[in-house]
Write a protein that binds this DNA or RNA. Sequence first.
RNA 1: CGGGGUGUAGCGCAGUCUGGUAGCGCGUUUGGUUCGGGACCAAAAGGUCAAGAGUUCGAAUCUCUUCACCCCGACCA
Length: 566
Amino acid sequence: MRWSKTLISTLRDDPQEAEITSHKLMLRAGLIRKLAGGLYTFTPLGLRVLHKVENIIREEMDRAGAQEILMPALQPIELWEKSGRASQMGSSMFRLKDRQDRQMVLGPTHEEVVTDYIMHEISSYRQLPCTVYQIQTKFRDEIRPRFGLMRAKEFIMKDAYSFDVSLDAADASYQAMFDAYVRIFDRCGLVAKPVEADTGNIGGNHSHEFMVLAPSGEDGILACTSCSYAANQERAERKVSGSPYSTKMGEPTEVPTPGARTVEESAQAVGVPNDQIVKSLVYLADGKPLMAIVPGTRELNECKLRRILGCSLLEMADDETSAKYAGTFGSIGPIGVKIPVYADLGLKGAQDVVVGANKTGFHIKHVSLEAQVKVAEWHDLVTVEAEDCCPKCGQPLAMARGIEVGHVFKLGTKYTEAFDATFLDSEKKSNVMVMGCYGIGVTRTVQAVVEQNFDKDGIIWPASISPCQVALLPLDAHKDENCRRVSEALEKELQANGIDVLVDDREERPGLKFKDADLIGFTLRVVVGSRSLEKGVIELRERKSGETTLVPVAEALHAIKAILAK
RNA sequence: CGGGGUGUAGCGCAGUCUGGUAGCGCGUUUGGUUCGGGACCAAAAGGUCAAGAGUUCGAAUCUCUUCACCCCGACCA
């Protein structure tokens, strides 16, 4: 590959549109170019990286026994109505109509399509287990695309789906994918931490996300400082021991709190610290009303509540609906309400708290929850924060940010039941297949590698996915015959040995070539200059360590191979 | 969808407050001198100043509308 014949252009300045380092570097190094918000072109160099990641994924999927297929991105809406996700994912799906006026969608994921495919192919337990995968463009009408490839409207995903005869068998398929993911991210030079995760609108009851730790990550991760527990903040649980609330009691007393809407305002009006207020929230779970109460300084975690309730749609009630069940829309509280009250464990045993009086402009202080509130169920309901206690070992949890590069789910029979995807077992009985699904954001993974591997000079690619393993820089080729000859011979030698090499054959000054090579981040830079050739050597420089070695021309190939094998 | 910010040459920016017909750096083209960490000199190409409407003798600049992009939020009594 010759630089002068390849579309490569680097930028000296940070593009104004980019905020995080990896996005800036991808643009500056000329790996991607923006078409519009959330839409990017991969340049020849960027595409090489993408292909290398894809190939690693293919190798590991194949090794894990999965078979590659390719499904349509364009899909009839009927499939989505069948699974019930047409309305659930509705707003994030791109919809369009064909000339027959048929409603179509651009696939944001493929559980429906793959279930339809597999149910027609598989009818016997003898054909199971079966895992298929594809690497394909997905479309999602994101609320807010951002950070370049991190959250785009169109992106490349590897999605795999497993089908099994039973839950136990499905566990094995899940584990095989989990193990493959560990290998994939490792081979891409990424440190990706598996954490327990919420299943969102994909469904199922058990999942892990693979997180790349980075301050720019969009997800919060809670990890135990002592044991191996780690979970997405959406999912994370905490151990609660003892009540932080005073046991001193006065008589329950109504206090005027005019206009107080927030915890802070209420606490101030009553004259107590924020954490003595009990926050009361009215929700509709698939239309059924309930009240959730949590400590005033904590946030209710809707993901957790939804999981506890087992509902598909959970929404906070508007003022009018709250008033219908609590008698008022300000100052609501759990005393005497006719709807079930779900209380956070942090309130258990609370003896002296403040709640809304269900009377506009009033709160009640010195309330004993145990005595005065009929709690339907106690659960861990709040969003876990750093310093909360690990649910497994009780030690403090620490908080970090993460980029989700992969997600594995045990789906159970959510889709196979909806589609009636069955097989005959050895006793000629019909059973519903048990499913799992497994995604890797391929384009996001590329950028996550950059986010984790850079320095002040640019990107530092791991050898496994560097756009080219070697950047060969002849410094004086246009005027030094010997330099050109050595360089061309080495280029051929490398190619013959399966090492991909980019030759910077531009008539540019050395400094500029060095800067560009560092910015793009080729794993190994090989310099052929007349100065060192006079001594019969060429220079090898590792991008990551900056370590430079001079080797005789004849030994160059051997030395390059040794460095790349590291 | 709400809030904030930004739109001027391929990229990064100044000029806008105080209206007078567009500039700097990088990049590009040509010539020359250079040549181991983003060289220098000279010449040149490249812009309906996001779009539309208005005010004005005159608008990048003032007013209104629209659009695009970026950031924050979209849930807390």
